[in-house]
Design a protein around this nucleic acid. Structure first.
Lengths: 187, 187
DNA sequence: GAAACCATGTAAGTTGTTACATGATTGG
DNA sequence: CCAATCATGTAACAACTTACATGGTTTC
């Protein structure tokens, strides 16, 4: 799903500015979708130009106008159309797993650091989800609430499984790495 | 990790042609890395030009020469350097989860189809991993074998967790979708 | 006889990121 | 006082995908 469609969907759940959208994407959705300001702002401009969203400019003191976007009836139809299209394969590129493939070429200390770092990042996500910092509470529609519960719960399940797996299997990487290097080189 | 570095890493595990690399990427690594011919072939050409890999052309009957690439000493050093750099965030973009966020706008039948399709794709990956079609057996180095065991096992754990989660929680999406639509409209 | 596999490569196009530009306000 | 937050936008760039080009061989 491209950025335009995704933003249209987010606006179907409630009005927002570009800045607010970006902040939300940094929360509990970041595990399956991400977008930078550099793609969000142009996308919103394009959606407005195509009549799929309405835009209200709120003048502010020292800052640029805050622009509140709302989905239009045409936008809702376009979104429904887009949701009817065939499912695309997920795109994943994991720097972590790619490196683990070549763990045998890494310094043991460095390797250990990467693994620990990764474990901590999974734990941080789990903590964030558990503490419900995600403000899904502000949705009127209980269907939408259930949808968000589903995707956030999905992130919880995946991060939990990943953390558990790493803990239980890091020895596969670390044991061999430690063996291979300076067996008894009393430095 | 960009395509060039990843290919360099794969070649560190053993020689291969561009075509063979692509085939391997369609196997048990596809859950965390993917690349098309259009990125593989130019990357190999570039690596050879930079002296990081050596290339041997094998003439063949009706086909283009098969080009076997092997990592060079310089390539090995470049790879080790690259592996020492700071870890990048995984990039994930899930069309499936993005759509589930907007499940309330989908036709119930269509939604059900998407969920079932997704479940089956997880199960297919699990079956493929279980049947060990991945030919990691042809590695001499036991360190490399352990590394591959780790990343493939990671895929197994994640796919299992995802499938279980979907089975247990699809009702969150489907229940609400069915309710909202023609409560008793005897078509 | 059609589809899939083997085998490489290029060019055009899409999509998105990074860095820059601007600048007041609030919290530590 | 420095960093972070609020707030939008553009332009240059990077990276990758898709489709095209070529064409024999093997499998159903």
């Amino acid at each position: 799903m491209d950025v335009k469609t995704f933003l249209l969907g987010l606006l179907a759940l409630g009005e927002a500015s570009g800045y607010e959208i970006k902040k939300r994407l940094e929360g509990p959705f970041s595990h399956f979708y991400d977008a930078s300001y550099g793609s969000i702002y142009p996308a919103l401009t394009k959606l407005a130009k195509d009549g799929l969203v309405d835009c209200e400019s709120l003048a502010q003191d020292g800052r640029p106008d805050k622009k509140i976007y709302r989905i239009s009836p045409a936008g809702r139809m376009a979104l429904i159309d887009a949701l009817g299209e065939p499912l695309l394969k997920d795109k994943v590129r994991s720097d972590f797993l790619a490196r683990m493939m070549f763990a045998a070429l890494m310094e043991p200390r460095h390797l250990e650091g990467l693994i620990t770092e990764r474990l901590e990042s999974h734990r941080a996500v789990l903590a964030e989800i558990a503490s419900d910092e995600m403000g899904l509470a502000d949705l009127d529609d209980s269907n939408d609430q259930n949808s968000l519960k589903f995707v956030v719960g999905f992130g919880d399940a995946i991060n939990r499984a990943a953390a558990d797996y790493i803990e239980e299997n890091r020895h596969l990487l670390e044991a061999s790495a430690f063996v291979r290097r300076e067996p008894a080189a009393a430095e």
